[in-house]
Design a protein around this nucleic acid. Structure first.
Lengths: 214, 214
DNA sequence: GGTGGCATCCCCCAAAACGGGGATCCCCGG
DNA sequence: CCGGGGATCCCCGTTTTGGGGGATGCCACC
């Protein structure tokens, strides 16, 4: 899994981004001692993106939740500004929706903060060697949720649910989205169907809990 | 602020609990160098509680979100098992509801992980000296939310909203709570009033977002 | 002993949502 | 070229909600 032709001694350059000073310190310290060259640190997404563009590191280790710019959107932009940089997400919490969105965004690694720090090094070398790394825990939930229910909504359905969560009625949502109230109802019903909800309220609650809408 | 009669050189004993290895490492390292005696570490709430009971430290620095036992419930139990230990929450995220619940639970300090690590030491000495410490950011939002809208729900209103989020209809909720559907409606309307919501769906969404219900 | 908050129950009525249908259009992939 | 999924729109009858109103008992606080 780890070695794809290059051993652990390979020179790896890395930018770290996390809004928690303790994490930034700990990771920098740990990776530094492990022979990784830390070429930049950042406390928010924008700062991280600048560092990545400037230094074009092999790996960028970033938190998902950061001020100004989240890790996933950061990954999308980094793909253009630094095509050779592999993004690894290092985060405290991860669900299926987030993981799939991250992988779509081109993220190459996904490590949970609750994992032993060794995994960090493993992930770094995996992606630096051209591979990918997903935390075993997440990999498990991903596999588990593959077989069961998908419950992924269309863009329109998400739009409608979000406005529903903001307290708008069907016709108000219709005006907002330039469609008729009847169509809104259709979307709501489809969403309720997919989310296996008995009421629109439950559908919104499910979508919120599963982070399908914010 | 810091010295309440004792200078910074005071001997302070401390137990640290966090499920993120990096945070645990960084905090232990930092506090150790600052002269704080780390008498125990834990990766989850139960482990932390055992350590606290065993060592009766002056301070316990714990994360809010931990496996098995959250930081707030931990604080409640620690108050009985180790009355002389002051609990400081060190967490990545904090909203008003959480802060007030924490203070109710007897938590003496509240520090955000995004704050400079110096604040950690400041908080530790503050609570070890008998004082309290709340992160400036949280203190701000607390003050801000004092003046504006309260939005605190009664137990019954929370009950109803939670069941609403689970997709139950009024009469189903009534059966569940042994009250009439009319009373359920009353609670929903009161909750909508307090949350300034136009629909019950929005009320549930607000309650979920503000962590008034889970 | 009053006042206010909480929980409980009841009524009415207009408006909205629900749960079934069915229907058209467009686009993409087999 | 046809199927299927997505987005759009429509109808009908039943049920629920939203927004008013009022009423009772209880308990705590002043």
């Amino acid at each position: 899994m780890t070695g794809v032709g290059s051993a652990g001694k390979t020179h790896v350059t890395c930018v770290i981004a996390d809004d928690h000073p303790a994490v930034l310190e700990a990771v920098a310290e740990y990776l530094g001692q492990a022979g990784v060259e830390i070429v930049g640190r950042a406390r928010d997404g924008e700062e991280a993106l600048e560092q990545i563009e400037q230094w074009q590191p092999q790996v960028a280790l970033v938190d998902v939740r950061m001020p100004k710019l989240g890790g996933i959107e950061l990954a999308r932009r980094a793909a253009r500004l630094a095509p050779d940089t592999s993004v690894v997400l290092y985060t405290g919490y991860g669900d299926r929706a987030q993981l799939t969105e991250a992988l779509d965004a081109g993220v190459r690694g996904f490590v949970l903060k609750e994992a032993p720090m060794d995994d960090l090094l493993r992930a770094l070398h995996a992606v630096a060697g051209g591979g990918t790394y997903v935390d075993p825990v997440l990999a498990g939930t991903l596999a588990a949720s593959m077989g069961s229910k998908d419950a992924q909504l269309t863009q329109r359905e998400r739009d409608v649910l979000r406005l529903l969560a903001d307290g708008l009625a069907n016709d108000e949502i219709g005006k907002q989205l330039f469609i008729s109230a009847e169509t809104v109802r259709t979307h709501v019903r489809k969403a309720m169907d997919k989310l296996d909800a008995d009421t629109r309220t439950q559908a919104v609650a499910r979508a919120l809990r599963d982070h399908l809408i914010s």
